[in-house]
Every structure is written in structure tokens, then in C-alpha cells.
């Protein structure tokens, strides 16, 4: 068994329909496994998780470890980390991938400590280099740079990966995985944290996450008042307004509108990006739009370089001109 090179993807299914990162990781793990003669394994921990076992099977898992037990009925990172640790100690995967959700990051950090291994946060890409090393690409130094990281000694190699970094595979109802059911380790208990209550919060920006058109504003818009015009623009274009972190911090827009690593992951067909520099923490939340229009005074801004059409002008003025133009064209 130790000869086998397994890539594990830990199922984070609590927000299955909103957050597909586990499925995206299964697809990527499939690519990596093909190159290293490995096996793609999903790990599903919890209680009453059959539905997710089926989903992961249909999305590329070749083997699924299922720990379905009342002891695991609370979705707590301290608890899951212990279960994952014991499983990893027995089965010795080469690589463990976890989506960089809040839960995933907490779980991954705790499991890595327990396993005494390294963990790279928020990867935007993963690949095997010519020497067969597993390379993790992650933002460094405040996100202005990308670093490629390897673990020379530590195993398993662990990484959390940004939602949206990879595409999931289509659902294949005929796919069959080897399913291995396991009991949790004897006497499993959490870290002493008790879940008193939990409930899903209301509007969390799902409209933004699913919008086909997003108008994203950055600090270059200049003020809260000017930022407000984006709502008018969004209305005219039938889109949603997104924002960068400085905008949210300055209270020009609600927290729910934050786009990026720390906020929403969007996948619009059409993106208007106004007064946005294009820091990686921001762009990591944007999955390949078909068409991007950027407005910035600085033609060298990363966002301008990424755009299909880069408009070198004042962001606010362009927003106003665009609103006028759209109204004139009868798009009211």
C-alpha cells in the first residue's frame, strides 16, 4: 500500500451547491495522478454523507474513504482534523488537497500540525515538474508575487487551493469508484469545542457569485459617492456590483460585495473592472470571464493587462459616460 501514490481530496460539502472547490480539486488531482501513476481518492467525513459520496464518485474520485458516524455529525475542524490525521497515518497519501474555504483552511492547518508536515496556503496552481516534484504555486509577499514551492522532505504534501483555480469535470453518473468504509478512530473526540448552534446566514452575495455580468469597482473610483454610480451601471447592464478590499474597508460597499480570495468567487461572462489594480488576491476570485473591460489611469496596471479592452481614462468619468450612452441606446 505504501508503494501506491495517492492524491487525496478532502470533501468539504457543507456548501456543496455554492462552492464547488472539492469537485475542482478532484479534476486537478485526476490530471496529476495520470502523470505520476497515482490514484485520486476522496475523503468524506461526517454523518449521513452518502449523497456526497455519490457526487464525488460522479466527479472523478477513483476511490472514496468514507467515515460516516454520529461522532462526526458536527462540522468542526478540530474534530475532522483528528479523523483525517488517523486516516492519513494509516494510508500514507502522497498529497492531500483541501479547498481554501474558511473551514478547509482551519482543518488543513490543524491536520498538518498533527501530521507534522508542511502546508501551502491558497494555491492558485499545482503541477508536477520535470523531476516529478509536486509544485505548489501560491501568492507571496502580499500577493504581488507568485512563489513556486516544493516540499523536499515532508510527507504528505498538503495544500489548500483557491476555489475557482481549476474547472470541475462534468457529472458522470456511470462512473464507479472503489468505496472504502471506515470507522472513526477509537475514542475519537474533538478538541474540546462544542457546537451550540449554527445556522446558514441569509444573503451572502449568491447573486454576485452567479452573475453573468459583474461591474467591479476599486479604489480608483475615488469616493463612496462616485462608487454608488456603479449600481446604476449594473442596473442598466443587468449585472451585479463587486468591490475590492480597499473599497469594502473604506465602507463604499458592503462586505458581501468583496470579490477575491477573502470574498466572493465570481464567474461572469462579462466583467467591467473600474479603478482596480488587479492584485492577485482580487483576481483569484474571478474565473476567466469571456470578455473583460478595464478602466484605469495606469495602462500598466495588471487588470489592464488582463483585459480584452483596456480603457486608459478616469474610472468615474467613464462610468458616467457609459451610463449616459446606455441610456441613450434605450437600455433603461
Amino acid at each position: 500500500m505504501n508503494q501506491e501514490r495517492a492524491i487525496w481530496v478532502v470533501g468539504d460539502y457543507r456548501n456543496y451547491f455554492q462552492n464547488r472547490v472539492t469537485l475542482q480539486l478532484l479534476a486537478k488531482a485526476g490530471e496529476l495522478a495520470a502523470k505520476m501513476d497515482g490514484t485520486v481518492c476522496a475523503v468524506v467525513m461526517g454523518h449521513g454523507v452518502e449523497e456526497w459520496v455519490g457526487e464525488y464518485q460522479a466527479h472523478g474520485a477513483q476511490r472514496i474513504y468514507v467515515m460516516d458516524h454520529p461522532l462526526l455529525s458536527e462540522y468542526l475542524p478540530g474534530l475532522f482534523a483528528r479523523a483525517l490525521e488517523s486516516l492519513a497515518r494509516q494510508r500514507r497519501p502522497e498529497i492531500i488537497l483541501i479547498g481554501a474555504t474558511s473551514f478547509g483552511k482551519e482543518l488543513a492547518a490543524r491536520a498538518a500540525s498533527r501530521l507534522g508536515t508542511g502546508l501551502t496556503a491558497d494555491c492558485v496552481d499545482l503541477y508536477l515538474d520535470q523531476e516529478g516534484r509536486f509544485v505548489q504555486v501560491a501568492p507571496a509577499y502580499g500577493g504581488n508575487l507568485l512563489a513556486e514551492i516544493v516540499f523536499p522532505r515532508h510527507r504528505p504534501q498538503m495544500a489548500t487551493v483557491r476555489p475557482g483555480a481549476f474547472a470541475e469535470m462534468p457529472h458522470d453518473a456511470s462512473a464507479r469508484a472503489e468505496i472504502i468504509r471506515l470507522d472513526p478512530p477509537a475514542g475519537l473526540s474533538g478538541d474540546g469545542v462544542r457546537l451550540v448552534s449554527c445556522r446558514r446566514l441569509g444573503y451572502q452575495g449568491e447573486d454576485l457569485e452567479n452573475a453573468k455580468v459583474v461591474i467591479c469597482g476599486g479604489r480608483g473610483l475615488g469616493s463612496r459617492k462616485k462608487f454608488k454610480n456603479l449600481h446604476e451601471l449594473a442596473r442598466l447592464l443587468g449585472g451585479e456590483v463587486g468591490a475590492t478590499r480597499p473599497v469594502v474597508h473604506a465602507d463604499w460597499a458592503e462586505e458581501e460585495r468583496l470579490v477575491g480570495q477573502a470574498g466572493k468567487h465570481i464567474k461572469p461572462r462579462l466583467l467591467f473592472s473600474l479603478g482596480v489594480s488587479g492584485a492577485i488576491q482580487h483576481t483569484a476570485g474571478i474565473a476567466d470571464p469571456e470578455f473583460t473591460i478595464a478602466v484605469n489611469k495606469n495602462p500598466l496596471a495588471v487588470m489592464m493587462q488582463k483585459a480584452d479592452v483596456a480603457i486608459k481614462a478616469d474610472a468615474h468619468q467613464v462610468a458616467l459616460a457609459l451610463i449616459r450612452e446606455l441610456k441613450a441606446r434605450g437600455s433603461s
Binding site: 507568485l146 495602462p299 493587462q305 449616459r324
Partner: peptide
Amino acid sequence: AGRIIKIYAPAAQKKGELIQGTPKACV
């Protein structure tokens, strides 16, 4: 545990069109 083997500024991916001028002319 980790060793950085390479570090670089993320590459811009697209070769887009640049438009400049007054805001109105740009639009």
C-alpha cells in the same frame, strides 16, 4: 517544510486593445 524554487510577478495573460482619450470618446 517548503522551499521556494521560483518567485515571479504573475504574468498578464491577454493581449487586449487599448482605448484612450476623453471618457466620452472612449465609451
